[in-house]
Write a protein that binds this DNA or RNA. Sequence first.
DNA 1: TTAAGTGCAAATTATTTGCAGTAAG
DNA 2: CTTACTGCAAATAATTTGCACTTAA
Lengths: 148, 148
Amino acid sequence: MRDGITMQATETRQKRGADWLAGAGLRPTRQRVALAALLIGDGKDRHVTAESLYAASCDSGEKVSLATVYNTLRAFCEAGLMREITVDGSKSYFDTNTSNHPHFFWEDDAHLTDAPAEELKIAQLPQAPEGAEIAKVDVVIRLRPARG
Amino acid sequence: MRDGITMQATETRQKRGADWLAGAGLRPTRQRVALAALLIGDGKDRHVTAESLYAASCDSGEKVSLATVYNTLRAFCEAGLMREITVDGSKSYFDTNTSNHPHFFWEDDAHLTDAPAEELKIAQLPQAPEGAEIAKVDVVIRLRPARG
DNA sequence: TTAAGTGCAAATTATTTGCAGTAAG
DNA sequence: CTTACTGCAAATAATTTGCACTTAA
């Protein structure tokens, strides 16, 4: 073990992943535990696409098919463990932080990060039209490299 | 002419469409004028998908291929005549209202409408991280049918 | 044992593109 | 005339699905 703080034993990360699954009543299969470990193993929030998570799992040496990555991300969302974020028409992003919060979308390399929720203050929101109610408000702050 | 107010002559609508194109320096081909007439012919803002606009053009009797609808919507966006809105991972929406304003997304039938910009008051926005600047802030208010 | 999960390859959906023909300036 | 536009059909890209096989409970 080269680094006691940042490099956790794989077993620890997998334990956390398994617990996370158990909390949602999901069957802890080898591939789900592996993906869960990659997603929340170090306790940090993460934003992934199916492709990026698939790449990460390949890198980590775990063998999980791309179809399973897709199915698993869907299952995690349905179980309330993750949230799907819509920012770019072409692909779907998934966030391990399920609280309601704004996002930064970096237009130059199309990646997503959390924006500090406490810095966003909405003083007034348009009211929902008759017969409808607000399900969710999505705020995406698109960023580009600063000029100069 | 059955209705002098709501039913405008096709020529009038097409004239408007042609002017709109001319204002952006786009060549007024038959298909562009037809699509433009459908989009802004009556002066109202409109939200379309490539498919919905294609369907509308078929209904109106104009013959425009789906590929051309896609290419034309892109061209209109590049020319600044329309704005692309990202709300649903699966398809792209296009808005004839190019001002910065929030949207209502009706989850039950996946359609989009404008939300009143004056009713949205953002008191504070997260500041852009070092080296980045805010290009745009997208606000999408997701609606579901009110319970009951 | 048995219902749920997995992996592959084929299917779908939204969108783009190559290219030959058509039309606008 | 000359370059941009159009339409078709084929190509892509992201994602889903059918189905035989595996595995957790």
